[in-house]
Design a protein around this nucleic acid. Sequence first.
DNA 1: AACGAAGTTTCACATATTAAAACCGATTGA
DNA 2: TCAATCGGTTTTAATATGTGAAACTTCGTT
Lengths: 258, 258
Amino acid sequence: MSEKYVQTLERSLDVLEVLAQAEEPLGVTEIGNRISLHKSTVHRILQTLCHRGYVEKKKDHERYQLGIKIIELGIRFFNDLEIRKVAAPVLSDLVKVLDEVAHLVLPDEGEIVYIDRAESSQVVSMHSKVGRRAPMHCTAVGKALLSTMPEEEVRHILEQKGMTSYTPNTITDIDTLLVELRQIKATKISIEKEENEIGIICLGTPIFDYSGQAIGAISVSGPASRIQEKGITRIGEEMKKSGERISANLGFDFYKRS
Amino acid sequence: MSEKYVQTLERSLDVLEVLAQAEEPLGVTEIGNRISLHKSTVHRILQTLCHRGYVEKKKDHERYQLGIKIIELGIRFFNDLEIRKVAAPVLSDLVKVLDEVAHLVLPDEGEIVYIDRAESSQVVSMHSKVGRRAPMHCTAVGKALLSTMPEEEVRHILEQKGMTSYTPNTITDIDTLLVELRQIKATKISIEKEENEIGIICLGTPIFDYSGQAIGAISVSGPASRIQEKGITRIGEEMKKSGERISANLGFDFYKRS
DNA sequence: AACGAAGTTTCACATATTAAAACCGATTGA
DNA sequence: TCAATCGGTTTTAATATGTGAAACTTCGTT
């Protein structure tokens, strides 16, 4: 009798993920080592993936990397994401007002995933966070989302994922965080002061859909000094208004709920 | 003896692609029908895909759709794409000057894939083409790319893909197109007047990398009347300049080649 | 309450996948 | 120039693994 999952498929996904993380083309043997698979198995999986366009063989003829088909799937999904379509213009406006970077994130498996980004004028976009994951306990968006969940669920996530310390400011105590979350639940504004990355302050607010469920969050972030200068309160208010606009456009009824 | 490719993986990719095309969540049986697979097989593949986050089961508990992990892979790749990073700011500038939509496309398997888009001010972005495929013979970007290939390869592509007619203006004769391509090769500007979609005019120009290979193309498009009004020549020149800037930033040496 | 439609689980069988080993081709160093 | 090394690719025999039929479960409908 068989396993619950399809082994071959899992292995193939391992190959894809290893390629995605690598940022540079990898060889068959290298991939095999990383996921502990025989090179000939890896080879056949790669052949299939290539054949279908999900992986490409660099012309230097020895290395494999993700192929264009991956974008097709991913971007199509991205484009169709309702919350993204609704949020994009609002974030764009928000950035015009504050001239700081704004992000849209979605929760997934107790973590957050950066989905979209609106940035000020010509700021060269560094390595964008879009597509990346981050923990909830040390990000403004994460805390905004946690603040909408029942305490029990919050505890579960924090216990399961741990509360890794990234800076001296990272909150590593569950109860301390729970207190803060209650505050956030009331104000709908979360603040993260260098808890994730030294020198960066980030504010977040949750996004609700028609059912009142928090399905994402937006944030504004920038260098600590500049953010302080512009005024945390003002930024918070502007951002909160943007969040409310997005939620409203998703059918959230403030009148009924507020 | 065994096939060249991994059957299970191919079937799994079929499942993913069917979900990607569907635009709406599908049930197990429905998917099975579309790709002619037994529903229990489909079910097990879906379980695995869900387990890994590439597919999600809607809470209405009966339908499956692409999951957030797909975005993670796709967007990461997207963000890392060198040509995209280089083209984005240039396209953004181009849009500011012309106030029409600009696209970046890559060639793949004799077709083009829309990769990125820069759009004028607040034009609500309709259903974006990003992530979609289109034929080469009836798009400005496609013709721009074809113009850089040897005639033999062009013939091969056109024969293999056919020259489907989308409007009365679509060029459906190989030789007619070949003549036009020679022209485009010289000017580096391709024009497509309602050959793909009635009412839309599109101009394109190829992008070259350090090796002199055309690796993509950019375009500007808009309603026929407005484009005419703004002047095809002017738009073409501006766009061509942008293309040259992108190519130069990718290391293409105009001095050596031009 | 019975029926039908769809999802899920079980299970015996045979096929498709695997890993070892052989093969090939390029690069390196003597 | 030749031998050695290191990948990538191909072959093959053994069997673990994925498959589809059928049974089972829900759920919604008549």
